[in-house]
Design a protein around this nucleic acid. Structure first.
Length: 548
DNA sequence: ATACTCGGAAATTAAAAGTT
DNA sequence: ACTTTTAATTTCCGAGTATG
């Protein structure tokens, strides 16, 4: 590869030569590889800037050149000019400079930014746009349509990671407060990372006025601030959620449930059944079978949480647009549902209800020490760590890529955490701990170098085989708030977060296959192939990542 | 001297329309 | 089926500007 790219690159610098590079791997059609000599224009070397001083002169000269080109068509060619690059890299694109087909391109290599030389952003042609996209384009109308649309190029922007990229300008209903402190904190810290900070230390959502101020200060593009689009892109994760919840102690649910028909095929659509916490995915789980057959008449306090989960779901409803209900309304719906229907039945097709039902029953059979969880898990620490970790280890472009990845799944986290209360968080953590128990068993049988971590990357479980492979000691990885990305080489960290972002809300039965370079404690690299799968909790939040 | 920015010409692409 | 036209989009030339 090296030799090829050097050849190609050299030729790109010498613009009068034909590109000697024999391969244009991306050449999509014959026409793209074809260079019509009659269309080639050789710049006149003698027509330098000194030959015209005013704008008028320049325009006149240009016109004359053009006229010459058309009237005395294409005489005196020194030889065919180099074919244009099939696609400019992001840097060249932004700088309007000559690029080439090799990656990294020669210009980036020269400038020492080869590591960030990636394909430039290309707009979809207007005639290829969907109706939706066209409408969005029209809405954005104020922004000049051509040439000025900022490519989401991986360019360093500012030290605070702020960007005009709409991806980063995901904003949120300023009136909204999350149902739980933990969710508020997680949201705040993610916001802080993404340069749309709500005060992380406050622990509560900022007031509308505060947020509006932030918006004015940090988001110069009025169109993109508060844009609802990223949120609208999310509702598939909660569509089909029940608007009505039944007690877990009523009639057993039917196992054959109609699939929600509202899930769009073109978007990542989580499979509701597959996103059950691990033990519930397996109908072979003895506890589950037992519970299912014999509904438990009395469950003590921790298990009487069902209505809370129901409330979260009720508040979201089956609307295709995420609403931001006030806490009062939600509390009300909870109280009424728990009081007025002491033992309503679960309706068939009510996936979420069924999931909750299963979970309640399942948890009822847990060894009590396994779910000794009384407070929500604090994910903020993980994000704090990531925030500190990033600048200390990565260069700007890598940080930007990671932050961009975080921005991709952030709206979904927000949407799903909206209805959660502290009790929900506790419940989710219990499920998490229970799943860890299951996984621990599973891992002990498998013999594969496996690691299990949270969505923040915090390592929770490590198979002895992994320790053998990497020379890390088990006690240095587990229980020490060690993060999986600390064991990755830089590029692998970036790729991991990008992978995580794009798969976080996918069908959880899918695994993501990738390469990574692990680092031994000594820093020695271990190139590896690995795959990971992401399990989501009962609220569809990515919860456990299992990597092998 | 060198690097960067950016207007705009040229090249490319692909759908639509026309022709055989 | 093939060719031509049309319109949208991308590449990158080259002039101007900024920086050291």
């Amino acid at each position: 590869m090296g030799a090829d790219s050097i050849l190609t690159a050299t030729s790109s610098e010498m613009s009068t030569l034909v590109d000697p590079s024999p391969v244009t791997t991306a050449a999509p059609s014959p026409s793209s590889a074809y260079v019509n000599p009659s269309q080639m224009v050789t710049p006149e070397p003698q027509a330098g800037p000194s030959h015209y001083r005013t704008q008028k002169d320049k325009v006149a000269l240009k016109k004359r050149r053009r006229d010459e080109d058309t009237e005395a068509p294409r005489k005196s060619r020194d030889g065919p000019k180099k074919k244009k690059a099939n696609r400019a890299c992001a840097h060249c694109q932004k700088a309007h400079l000559t690029c080439d087909d090799s990656r990294p391109c020669q210009r980036c290599v020269k400038r020492g930014i080869a590591s960030t030389c990636t394909e430039g952003h290309r707009k979809k042609a207007k005639y290829l746009l969907d109706d939706d996209e066209l409408q969005q384009l029209k809405k954005k109308g104020r922004v000049p349509e051509s040439s000025s649309e900022p490519a989401p190029a991986l360019q360093p922007t500012s030290d605070t990671f702020q960007s005009h990229d709409p991806l980063f300008n995901v904003s949120f209903d300023p009136n909204f407060t999350f149902g739980s402190e933990a969710a508020n904190l997680e949201y705040s810290i993610l916001s802080a990372i993404l340069g749309n900070p709500s005060p992380p230390e406050s622990g509560t959502a900022p007031s509308p006025s505060q947020q509006q101020q932030q918006q004015q200060v940090s988001q110069p593009l009025p169109n993109s601030a508060w844009s609802p689009e990223p949120l609208h892109a999310q509702p598939q994760y909660i569509q089909g959620a029940p608007s009505n919840f039944g007690s877990p102690f009523g009639d057993p649910p039917q196992l054959s449930m109609p699939q929600p028909d509202s899930l769009s095929a073109s978007q990542p659509s989580p499979t509701f059944l597959s996103s059950y916490p691990a033990p519930l995915c397996r109908t072979s789980s003895p506890a589950l079978q037992y519970s299912y057959a014999q509904p438990q008449p009395q469950l003590s306090a921790p298990y009487n949480l069902a209505p809370h989960y129901a409330r979260g779901v009720v508040s979201l409803g089956s609307s295709s647009v995420i609403r931001t209900p006030s806490r009062d309304t939600r509390s009300h719906s909870y109280e009424s549902s728990s009081q007025t229907s002491p033992s309503p039945t679960i309706q068939s097709g009510d996936h979420h209800s069924v999931r909750v039902y299963f979970l309640m029953l399942y948890l009822a059979h847990l060894p009590i020490q396994a779910i000794n969880v009384t407070t929500p898990y604090d994910y903020t620490e993980g994000y704090h760590f990531l925030m500190k970790h990033l600048p200390s280890r990565f260069e700007k472009n890598d940080i930007l890529r990671i932050v961009r990845a975080l921005a991709i799944f952030r709206p979904s986290l927000i949407a799903l955490q909206m209805p959660m209360t502290d009790e929900d968080e506790v419940f989710v953590e219990k499920c998490f701990q229970r799943s860890l128990l299951e996984l621990e068993k599973l891992i002990s049988y498998s013999g594969t170098p496996t690691v299990v971590w949270r969505r923040t990357g915090e390592i929770c479980l490590v198979a002895p085989e992994f320790c053998m492979l990497t020379e890390w000691r088990l006690e240095d990885l587990v229980g020490k708030r060690k993060y999986i990305y600390e064991l990755f080489e830089n590029q692998s960290v970036v790729e991991y977060w990008e992978n995580f972002a794009s798969h976080a809300f996918e069908n959880t039965t899918k695994s993501v296959y990738s390469h990574c370079v692990l680092l031994k404690p000594s820093g020695a690299p271990i190139p590896s192939t690995f795959c990971f799968s992401i399990r989501r909790d009962i609220f569809d939040l990515p919860s456990i990542v299992i990597g092998k």
